[in-house]
Write a protein that binds this DNA or RNA. Sequence first.
RNA 1: GCGAUCGUAGCUCAGUUGGUUAGAGCGCCGGUUUGUGGUACCGGAGGUCGGGGGUUCAAGACCCCUCGAUCGCCCCA
Length: 420
Amino acid sequence: MANNTPQAVRGTQDIFGADAEAFAFVVETFERVRKLYRFRRAEMPVFEKTEVFSRPLGETTDVVSKEMYSFEDRGGESLTLRPEFTAGIARAYLTNGWQQHAPLKLATHGPLFRYERPQKGRYRQFHQINAEILGAGEPQADVELLAMADQLLKELGIDDGVTLQLNTLGDPESREAWRAALVEYFSGHKDALSEDSQERLVKNPLRILDSKDRGDMAIVAGAPAIDDFLTDEARDFFAAVTSGLDAAGVQYERNPRLVRGFDYYRHTAFEFVTDRLGAQGTVLGGGRYDGLIETLGGPHTPSVGWAAGIERLAMLVGEKGESRVEIAIAAESRDREADAASAVAMFRRMGISTELFASGSPRKRYDKARKAEPGVLVSMDVRDGKDVQNWLVTLPEIDRQEEAFQAFLARWDIPDDNSL
RNA sequence: GCGAUCGUAGCUCAGUUGGUUAGAGCGCCGGUUUGUGGUACCGGAGGUCGGGGGUUCAAGACCCCUCGAUCGCCCCA
C-alpha cells in the first residue's frame, strides 16, 4: 500500500490532533505574554548565507561541519537552514539599521533545522519560540527577559517541576581565568576522566562540567567555581541580576556548573530544566551574548536572549482537546441534504462553529453527529412525506443557543413537543 | 558517527518450540430493526506480515543485509 509512497524525511514530523492543539496553545500563549512585555514581532528568513551561522561559532568543528543543514544554491553560494534564531536576528539588526531602535525587544517563533539523530524531544526540523533584547547592557534587561520566561511557563501551567537554573560566566577576563583554572584542575585528574571528557579537555573544557559520566561527576564536584575568578565588575553585574529577580519574584537556583559552549557568551546563563523529558531536560535556555554581533562585523552590542522548544513545551502542557463543535446538523434523509447545508452555512455566518453530517448511510448520520458531541444536535429528516426537524440541546449549553435557535426557527418549523 | 529495542490490516495488537487458505477489537463502507435514536444484529472492503537475500520439505516466526521508528551516547547554537 504505502510501498510506493515517499516517506517523510528522518527527524521531521507531522503534527496533528491533540499534539497540534498543544503546539498551538504554546504559540498562542507565547504571543500573548510577549505582548504583555512589549516585545515586537519579527520574521526572518529560514535560510541565510552559511557564514551568518558559522562565524559566531568560531572553530567549533562538530557543530559547523556536522550539525548544520548546509547546501549550495545554483550560484554556488553556501546557504544554511537556520539552526537557531539569534544569528539571523543579529544579521537583520545590522543590515536593516535596527540599531536606531535599541534597546530593541524582539520576539519570534518558527522552524529551525539541525542535522541530528532524532530522539525524545529532538528533531531535525523543530520549532522554537524566541525572545531577545538587543543593544541593552544593563542587568535589568536580563531580569525582564527572565521574568517573561518565568511568566510564560506559569501561564502554560508547567512551572511545577520546572526550575530555573542560573549562573554567570563573567566577563571575558573572569571567564578566561576560570577556564585556565579548570584546565589545570582537570589535567591533574586526567587519567580518572572518561574518554569523552579527556577529549573535551582539549576541545571544550567547560563542557566537562555537565558530563553525564558518574566518574566525571565526582571529579567535577571538586572543580574550581567561577565565583573565585569573577572581576568586581562581573560580580556586581550578577548581583544586580539576582537582586532584580528577587524583586520581580522570580524563583531560581544557582547552578555554578551551568556553562555555554561558545565564546560570545558573557555574564548571565540560564536554563529552565525538568526531569520529565528524558535526556532532554532543558525546556528553555538562554543567556547574554555581548560578543556575538561583533563577530558579524557589527559594533559592540550587548544583548540577551532565550529560546524554547515548542515540541518540548507541548509535551509538558498535556492534553489539549480540540474545541467542541457548537452545532452538528445531521441530514437523515438525502432529500434534506440541501436544507442541512443551507442551515450549516447560516450558522457559520453567525460565527458559530458547525459541522454537517450528510454523507454515508443516511441511517447512520445521526449517530455520527451524536459522536461528535456537539452543543446542539439538529436533525433534518422526512417522515410520512413531510419535512421534520429536531433541535436537541446538550449540556453544557453553547453560548448564543437561543439566538441560533430563533434563527433556525425563522426558516424551519419545529413542533412544540420536539423543541428544546 | 555509535549503541539498545522494535517494525503483522487505517489504528491498537494476537499469532504456541517454524507446519496447511494470516486473526481479533476499534474504525471505515453497505444493509437490517419503519425507527426521537450514541451502546443491537448481518455483511463488506482493506495485509505480497517494512524491503532484499539465505537456511528448511515448510518462515510472519531462524540467520545476514538494508530501510524506518523509538530511546540513549556524542553534540547541543
